[in-house]
Design a protein around this nucleic acid. Structure first.
Lengths: 206, 206
DNA sequence: ACATTGGATTAACGCCGTTATTTGGGTCCG
DNA sequence: CGGACCCAAATAACGGCGTTAATCCAATGT
């Protein structure tokens, strides 16, 4: 009971913080306004998190899991490795744009603002790249993709997708460009950049 | 004389702020530590800038100019449009990594942290995309690039380069990947993604 | 009935951006 | 010369921040 309530308060803090991230953003997220929202004093949060960074790390943890679930879902829902990769690209961008409360603290917040993410949690975060690298690897073995270093290709794909998400969500992309067209072109560009010349020659018109 | 000194102080503020951006980063840049550095009180800065955002906007202005100069230099230093585009890509990444004091406030700082960049300065900032779009356009006319919307292609290229810069400088790229190889692969990917199938068939081994 | 525990609060510290007020030296004019 | 004015610059202060220290108080155990 007291354990349940303790968990309850911890969850309430996390949920409130996440909600405030969507409404006021990280720049205006404070221990004091989280506390006010749940009817406690700011210092009470320190009974459950040792610092604001610690709280954010807990949320990042959640975000990493959510993203992994969505990538996995896209992975199994498709058949060919190229379709799987493209589906994951779209899932990544969708996650970045629709769950920006997570995306912002996971990948946008500059490390200088926040203590380094604990080393022992890196492994879990890396799964989100490895699942994409695996699709690249499979494509190579299927003869659809060129023989590239899968991890290099995955990181490069990540950079493309990350750029698309951040430029779109910070409204830096030219307004005359339709966001859907932009995302579409980006995802196809990621995949087609891996095609063998033969596979490429047979692709449909852009 | 008094005019020169006034300009001198304004310059001193800008230079000190820029230097602090490289040493302590935006998160720890404050009106008070800028002032301490130049031996004035914090409030004196308000005689030259109406707010911290205003000061940062002035620095962004400088950064936009510096980037434009470097892109232009890369543009004229090469001959074929594909070489020009690739040279500009490399110049962009170099700017992002080496002048990160500018890059951070220009393209990384989330808009929620800072007042919107004044509309009348957008035009100048847009030149940095248009110069790349022009290279795409030229490549199309030369028959080297596929017939794509130049502005869409430029923004997509920008997203790729921006992703590379931000992931590298926030140390989020897998440590086993050589940064130079990463940048290299990224820039070539941007360019080769635009090639016509014929031009692509004749490219060298990856 | 008393001591102990531990969740929760208030007070306080040193930062922050910014505004209001005050200082103080120079210049202009009667 | 003396007083009015100006204006760069400083100090004080406001409300907000993350965080720590001290305090309160109700429930628990003996």
């Amino acid at each position: 009971m007291s354990e349940a309530e303790e968990k309850g308060l911890r969850r309430a803090i996390l949920d409130t913080a996440r909600q405030l991230l969507t409404t006021v953003g990280y720049a205006h997220l404070s221990m004091r306004n989280i506390a006010k929202e749940i009817g406690y004093s700011a210092t009470s949060i320190y009974l459950h998190f040792e610092s604001k960074d610690d709280l954010i790390h807990a949320l990042i943890d959640e975000g990493v899991d959510v993203l992994f679930r969505e990538l996995s879902q896209a992975d199994v829902a498709s058949s060919s490795s190229e379709q799987r990769l493209e589906a994951m690209c779209r899932a990544y961008v969708r996650f970045g744009l629709e769950r920006s409360e997570y995306y912002g603290i996971m990948y946008v917040l500059h490390p200088e603002y926040i203590k380094r993410y604990p080393v022992d949690k890196y492994r879990k975060a890396r799964r989100n790249l490895e699942i994409m690298a695996q699709a690249v690897q499979d494509g190579i073995e299927a003869g659809v993709f060129r023989k590239v270093e899968p991890m290099l290709a995955a990181n490069l794909a990540w950079a493309q997708l990350h750029g698309i998400v951040t430029l779109l969500s910070s409204e830096r992309v030219d307004k005359r460009i339709d966001p859907d067209v932009f995302v579409d072109a980006g995802c196809r560009h990621v995949v087609s950049g891996l095609f063998t010349p033969e596979r490429l020659a047979g692709r449909h018109a852009s």
